[in-house]
Nucleic acid binder design. Structure first.
Length: 441
RNA sequence: GGAGGGGUUCCCGAGCGGUCAAAGGGAUCAGACUGUAAAUCUGACGCGAAAGCUUCGGUGGUUCGAAUCCGCCCCCCUCCA
């Protein structure tokens, strides 16, 4: 993903002010020192991503976009994939011990995550091309004696126990922490030290829950190499209603279109709360401060127009899935939420399925509504199972519409000739979930 | 290895021989109101149309009857060694 005009975006420490304005800085090791450091010459910044799943999710966009902002100011970003640390598990941000994943599985995750993350940075540009590294490269060969003598010796358990992430687990009566996870901090610190040594990387960025790990990396660099490094953390993204950010009904919102369709992805953003939209525009888009201020005004003066929401959804979807996905997804959205269903042409229907609206094609000319709800997965219980009972409840609860008409009869059948253009049925559950059923004509 | 405290439905958390499919809260889904928002109110929330069936770490008992009592096993936490 190219994004030229980098490098000349003002003096090197302007990035700090920018991030501050965007509410993207939770803590900084020493602001004055960091600013001086950045202003002096282009620097190298890194952020780590542990392979905990086969895709990144929207929470990972925060550091990814922040790295790109650094790159736009002429600094070099390093993207570290935790092929090794992912095998250990970070105790941070977790109330209890992780289940270790099989080694092969993590290796597969590493590949996917590397590919995904790369799209957000520029690897070709002059001067400060991004770099991807995998900490398995230097951890795999590390033997225990070296680990304990050369690295472990620099860590005081007394200090480690004081770190927030560890402390919380020690104080929790029901959790505790294994030696494995306890050691995570050492590994992450060592990463920083290796990057400092090999790439002159002097800044590490991470979530505010990484603060302890990052600062202990700074300490390690001072002890092993006598160097001075810096830390920047971003706040963990919260939602105004206090629920966890990044979760939708089906769980996390993934960047992988196979796991979260661009349509759902777009819908996630357009559905965010009013109180969050401006903040999200700052964090998840590259819009200028002026544009964001305009959108904020619009949001204030005519909230029902949802201009800010729409722009947010467009921008983020474009960033992650590209321009054509935005077009496709907006076509679906317009059809479903703005137009009337009877205004859709036959081509429109055909296009909906292509654009990524969930759909099924059936060989039958008739199919029961219950069956449709079950097979489409719309009849998901609060627990996450798909059952016929749930389908019936939904129908009886006045929650299901076919081609815009509510159906309250559980025995209702979709028939080809009663559908639009002799085959299309748009089945709707609640206000926001749709499924297109195409029958045999 | 020893002593003590725990493992309950998606999560937290009550229950401690029948009235328990299991209080309460959260999350989730739906309905109403709206703006594809928030807040609020209502309903649903193990499976099943129902009879009924399957749940309270596992297993074997005691009992007419167990999430609740007993034995053994597994796992977690704290302290001691």
């Amino acid at each position: 993903m190219a994004h030229k005009e980098s490098g000349l975006k003002g003096s090197g420490d302007q990035i700090v002010s920018d991030l501050q304005q965007l509410e993207l800085i939770a803590q900084v090791s020493n602001e004055a020192a960091l600013r001086a450091h950045l202003a002096e010459q282009p620097r190298t910044v890194y952020c780590g991503f542990d392979p905990t799943a086969d895709s990144l999710h929207i929470g990972n966009l925060v550091p990814l976009l922040a790295l790109r902002r650094f790159q736009d100011y002429g600094h070099q970003p390093i993207l570290l994939v935790g092929g090794a640390t992912g095998l250990i598990g970070d105790p941070g941000g977790r109330a209890s011990e992780r289940t270790l994943k099989p080694i092969e599985e993590v290796a597969a995750f590493v590949d996917k995550i590397r590919d995904q993350a790369c799209r957000f940075l520029d690897f070709e540009c002059e001067g400060n091309p991004a770099l991807v590294v995998d900490n398995a490269d230097w951890m795999k060969g590390l033997d225990v004696i070296t680990y304990l003598r050369d690295i472990g010796k620099h860590f005081s358990v007394n200090a480690m126990v004081q770190k927030e992430t560890v402390k919380r687990r020690l104080e929790d009566d029901s959790a505790g922490i294994s030696y494995t996870e306890f050691s995570y901090m050492i590994l992450q610190s060592y990463d920083f030290a290796v990057l400092y040594r090999d790439h002159d990387c002097t800044i590490q960025m991470g979530g505010s829950d990484q603060w302890g790990n990052i600062t202990s990396g700074i300490d390690l660099i001072r002890r092993m190499q006598g160097g001075q490094a810096h830390a920047i953390t971003y706040p963990l993204i919260t939602k105004s209603d206090g629920t966890k950010f990044g979760k939708s009904a089906e769980g996390a919102v993934w960047l992988d279109p196979a796991k979260t369709s661009p349509y759902k992805f777009y819908q996630f953003w357009i559905n965010c709360a009013d109180d969050d939209v401006v903040r999200f525009l700052k964090i998840f888009t590259f819009l200028s401060a002026a544009d964001i201020a305009d959108l904020a005004d619009a949001q204030q003066s005519q909230p029902e127009a949802r201009l800010a929401h729409r722009r947010l959804a467009q921008e983020v979807t474009r960033l992650v899935h590209g321009e054509s996905a935005v077009t496709a997804v907006e076509r679906i959205t317009a059809a479903i939420f703005s137009n009337r269903i009877d205004a859709l042409t036959e081509q429109d229907f055909a296009q909906l399925a292509q654009d990524g609206l969930p759909s099924t094609h059936s060989d039958l000319a008739e199919v029961g509504l219950l069956t449709v709800l079950v097979e489409s997965g719309l009849a998901t219980t609060p627990k996450g199972e798909v059952t016929q009972g749930q389908a019936k409840k939904l129908i009886l609860g006045n929650s299901v519409a076919v081609n815009g008409v509510k159906q309250v009869d559980p025995e209702f059948k979709l028939q080809a000739d009663s559908g639009r253009y002799g085959r299309y049925h748009l089945v709707q559950k609640g206000k926001k979930q749709h499924h297109l059923v195409v029958l045999k004509r």
